[in-house]
C-alpha cells in the first residue's frame, strides 16, 4: 500500500513537471501529428488503403511517441543530480518504476486521445466499438509505459547511441502492437466480441511487464 502511495507521489511529481514544461504538448503531439500526416502521404490519397492501414499507423505513432516519452521521463532526472536524490529517498525502488511508468502512461493516453481525433479526421476512421477502443488504448498504454519505464534509464545512459533504446524496446513490445492494432481494427469495424481475446493478451502483457519491472528495476539503479 505504501509502495503505491510513493509511486503516486512520484507520478504526480512527473506529471506536474510535464505540465509546467509542456514537453508533451510542445514535442510529443506535433511529432505524432507529423508522423500521421507523413503516413497519409506515404499511403494516400486513396481512401481505402488509408482506412485499412489507419489502426496500424495510429499504433505506430503511439509506439514512437512512447519511446520518446520514456526517454524524457529519465532525461528530466539527469540534471542537478535529481536521479541520485530520487534514489536516496527512503522508498522502495519499485515505487520509482511504478511512478515513472504511470506518468508515461498518462501522457500516452493524452496523446492517443488527440491522435485518435486526427486519424478520424484525416483517414476517415469510424469507431463502432468505443469501449473496446478505450480498453485497447488504456491497456496498451500501460504495457508500453511499463517497458519504457523499465528501460528508459538505459536510454538516458546511452545518449550517444540514439538508436539503441528503440532497437531494444520495439521488438519487446511486439505483442502490444499486434494486439492493439487488431483490437482497434475490430473496434472500428464493430466486431467487438472478437476483440476480447486481444484485450486479454494486452492484460497478460501488462501483468507480466509491470511485475517484471517491480522485481528487477532495482538492479538497473544499483550503483
Amino acid at each position: 500500500m505504501r509502495l503505491l502511495r510513493h509511486a503516486a507521489t512520484i507520478a504526480a511529481k512527473d506529471v506536474r513537471a510535464e505540465i509546467r514544461a509542456k514537453h508533451a504538448l510542445a514535442t510529443l503531439l506535433p511529432f505524432a501529428a507529423t508522423l500521421l500526416v507523413s503516413f497519409g502521404f506515404a499511403f494516400g490519397p486513396g481512401r481505402d488503403v488509408l482506412l485499412r492501414t489507419a489502426p496500424g499507423l495510429l499504433w505506430m505513432a503511439v509506439l514512437f511517441a512512447a519511446v520518446i516519452a520514456a526517454r524524457r521521463a529519465y532525461q528530466i532526472e539527469s540534471e542537478d543530480g535529481a536521479l541520485e536524490g530520487l534514489l536516496l529517498a527512503p522508498i522502495d525502488k519499485a515505487a520509482v518504476f511504478l511512478g515513472k511508468a504511470a506518468a508515461v502512461a498518462l501522457q500516452l493516453l493524452m496523446l492517443v486521445a488527440c491522435a485518435l481525433v486526427l486519424v478520424v479526421v484525416l483517414f476517415d476512421l469510424t469507431v463502432r466499438g468505443p469501449l473496446v477502443l478505450a480498453a485497447a488504448f488504456g491497456l496498451g498504454a500501460v504495457g508500453l509505459a511499463a517497458v519504457g519505464g523499465l528501460f528508459g534509464v538505459l536510454a538516458e545512459a546511452a545518449r550517444t547511441r540514439e538508436a539503441l533504446f528503440p532497437t531494444l524496446v520495439l521488438p519487446l513490445v511486439t505483442p502490444v502492437l499486434v494486439a492493439g492494432v487488431r483490437a482497434t481494427d475490430l473496434a472500428a469495424t464493430g466486431r467487438t466480441d472478437e476483440a476480447i481475446a486481444w484485450l486479454g493478451l494486452l492484460v497478460a502483457f501488462d501483468v507480466v511487464f509491470v511485475s517484471l519491472g517491480v522485481l528487477v528495476f532495482g538492479f538497473l539503479m544499483e550503483d
Binding site: P171, L172, T174, P175, V178, A179, R182, A197, W198, L201, A204, F205, V208, L212
Partner: peptide
C-alpha cells in the same frame, strides 16, 4: 520472458 508472449501474439495474428 517476453518470447512466449511474442509467440502467442504472432500465432493469433
Amino acid at each position: 520472458v517476453d518470447v512466449p508472449i511474442v509467440h502467442l501474439s504472432v500465432v493469433w495474428w
